[in-house]
Every structure is written in structure tokens, then in C-alpha cells.
Design a protein around this nucleic acid. Sequence first.
DNA 1: GCCAACGTTGGC
DNA 2: GCCAACGTTGGC
Length: 154
Amino acid sequence: MKYWLGKSEPDCYSIDRLAGEKNKTTSWDGVRNYQARNFMRDEMKLGDMFLFYHSNTKPPAAVGICEVVKESYPDFTAFDPEDDHFDPKSKDDNPTWFMVDVRLVEKFNRPVSLQEMKENPKLKDMKLIQKGNRLSVMPVLKKEFNEIVKMSKK
DNA sequence: GCCAACGTTGGC
DNA sequence: GCCAACGTTGGC
């Protein structure tokens, strides 16, 4: 089983919105970065765990845990000219972009802020806190994942 | 709102 | 294939 972190801007899609979805499940659509796509398309498997992270907000923070409930399939928002994430180079018969479905397992009682992660020496190697990393989907080590969950309980 | 870091585009 | 220009991300 693998562990992941996915960023979302709460103004765009928040964890509370996910909590209100049917079956607390949503598609992780709109990813338009090849490296992030490759992680979703090639490596994310059913049952993988997924940290939900709020970016571009105050404060940026991990806010909960999800589980992958559907492995990658074409991101249909890329086919829709009306959609913000429309991409004309992605075709029905040869899609460029993929997504997975995730289900909310637990919303943290307490968000774990980016600053707290930076201050925790056990998390010093996380991709998230390395300078200039803009990946919206990235792998997380099991020990890092567990540490963040632990921090949310304190 | 600023701006550093990074990815993508397109002319050559 | 190089690289300058441009657009985006995302913390601050």
C-alpha cells in the first residue's frame, strides 16, 4: 500500500465539500501536470491512503485522510470546453489526463499546518516542505503519513 | 499583492 | 534541441 498527498485550494474544493458528497467520494479531477498524472495513473492503487491538503489558504495545512476507491480513468473535465480545466489536446480516444476517486475516511479534528510540519524534524525530508515543490499530487512515506496523523490527534 | 520556482510553449 | 518568454503555483 502506498501513501499520497493531494493539494486542493479550499476555495476551489474543500474537505468540507467532500464530507458533504454522496458516499463522501469525489473524483480528483483537474490535475494538469504530467508528473502528478503519472503518480495517479501508474502508481495509485485501490486502498492507498491519501492526505488531503489545503493549499493557497491561511494556514496551508493537511486537513484529513482519504482512501483511493477507484483507480485511474480518463479525466473527462479535460474534454469539456466549458470546464475550467478544459484541454483541447486531450482526446476521448487518447486521453492526456487521468484521475482517481477518493473517499473521505477522516477529517482531522485539528488541521496540521505546513509550519508545524516544517518544525517537526521527523518530516524534514518530505517533498511538500522542500523549497519550490509545486506538485499537486506527491508520494508520502508511511512514517511521514503516520506522523502527520499523530500530530492531528494532539 | 508579491515574487521565486517551476513547467510549458514556440521560434529558431 | 536550445532557450527566452510566458503562465502558473503557492507560500508569505
